[in-house]
């Protein structure tokens, strides 16, 4: 997924090869990750697509099924991956992910700790941020989830950047061998306050901590625990409002009759048809935008804190 090997980066000249991971795009709300495998087929409502037809095409190409339906093949990115991954847990979405990475000051070369791994949505973006030389250590107490996460990182080609550990971070804390090595720590745990002292031990001086919690009671308790050894404790909520865009024609209002705002459109139209000062009843098509009426109302609170510098 990441151009860690610079010859593999997206390019006019680079084409889809056997074994590549592609995102099959049907619609903005319907995508799927598929490993290209010569001899395999993809079947969906648009027909049957032969993988062998895809090999040699550029990423971003439109490909056709045997009955003429089409899909697009996109190069995978962490953002697309977040939309297609299998949800084993509640996942973090782009707004929270982006904000976390910026606020935790994660740059190439950083060592980052995360718990829990969950479905690996954030982990994928953390890996991108620390590449090519940094590393993400992510922990989940759920053995099977950790195994699935490892398989996913194998699939997305991030195994070299991510180590998945099975560990109960709330109960045992992070492993001692990582003490004082982490640039940033991210916690998505039901009782983050139990893991905060350990997170403090793992961080380098002046390092950043983030705790993600859906409930304000968790935030209050986590913030209380942070106060002893952290500073700059700040809590945020971030949401995205999306817009739909369409082109439409709107009736042109004839403003020549003061006080007749209540008159029927039909009447106006008749008038303008017979009148000498003829105006267009409808204006030219305009592009209009409005917020989508459905949106996420809440994801979670993000609490950030910086380890106090005491040395």
């Amino acid at each position: 997924m990441l151009p860690i090997d610079s010859t593999k980066k997206l390019s006019f000249t680079r084409c889809i090869r056997d074994g590549d991971l592609v995102i099959v795009y049907e619609r903005y709300d319907n995508m799927k990750a598929i490993k290209v495998c010569d001899g395999s087929v993809l079947e969906n409502r648009f027909g049957v697509f032969k993988h062998s037809d895809w090999v040699g095409k550029q990423f971003g190409s439109k490909v056709f099924s045997t009955k003429g339906g089409f899909v697009y093949l996109l190069a995978p990115t962490p953002e697309l991956w977040t939309l297609v991954l299998s949800h084993r847990t509640q996942i973090l979405y782009i707004a929270d992910i982006s904000f976390v990475i910026m606020f935790l000051e994660i740059v190439p070369g950083c060592l980052v700790l995360e718990s829990g791994t969950g479905s690996g949505s954030l982990t994928t973006s953390l890996a991108r941020a620390v590449a090519p030389k940094g590393h993400v250590y992510t922990f989940d107490f759920h053995e099977q989830r950790a195994v699935s996460a490892r398989e996913d990182f194998e699939k997305t080609g991030l195994s070299n950047l991510v180590t998945v550990g099975v560990r109960d971070i709330q109960g045992e804390g992070f492993p001692d061998e990582l003490s004082g090595m982490a640039d940033s720590v991210f916690l998505d745990l039901p009782q983050p306050w139990l893991a905060i002292p350990s997170a403090g031990k793992m961080l380098k001086q002046d390092g950043m901590l983030c705790s993600f919690s859906p409930c304000i009671e968790q935030v209050e308790r986590a913030s209380e625990t942070m106060r002893s050894s952290f500073t700059d404790i700040r809590t945020f909520e971030i949401l995205l409002r999306t817009y739909e865009v369409r082109e439409g024609k709107l009736d042109d209002f004839q403003g020549d009759e003061a006080g007749s705002l209540g008159s029927l459109p039909r009447k106006r139209r008749q008038r303008s048809n017979e009148g000498s000062n003829v105006r267009e009843t409808t204006g030219p098509p305009t592009v209009m935008a409005r917020p989508c009426s459905e949106a996420k109302g809440h994801t979670g609170y993000l609490t950030f804190a910086r380890l106090k510098c005491l040395s």
Partner: peptide, 27 residues
């Protein structure tokens, strides 16, 4: 966005506006 759609130049397009609110957290 409309023109990119008409010209079939891009997909997965979205216009979004982030909303960010900070909290005072005290017992």
């Amino acid at each position: 966005m409309h023109n990119l759609q008409l010209g079939k130049m891009a997909i997965g397009m979205q216009i979004s506006e982030p909303w960010l609110r900070e909290y005072q957290v005290l017992p």
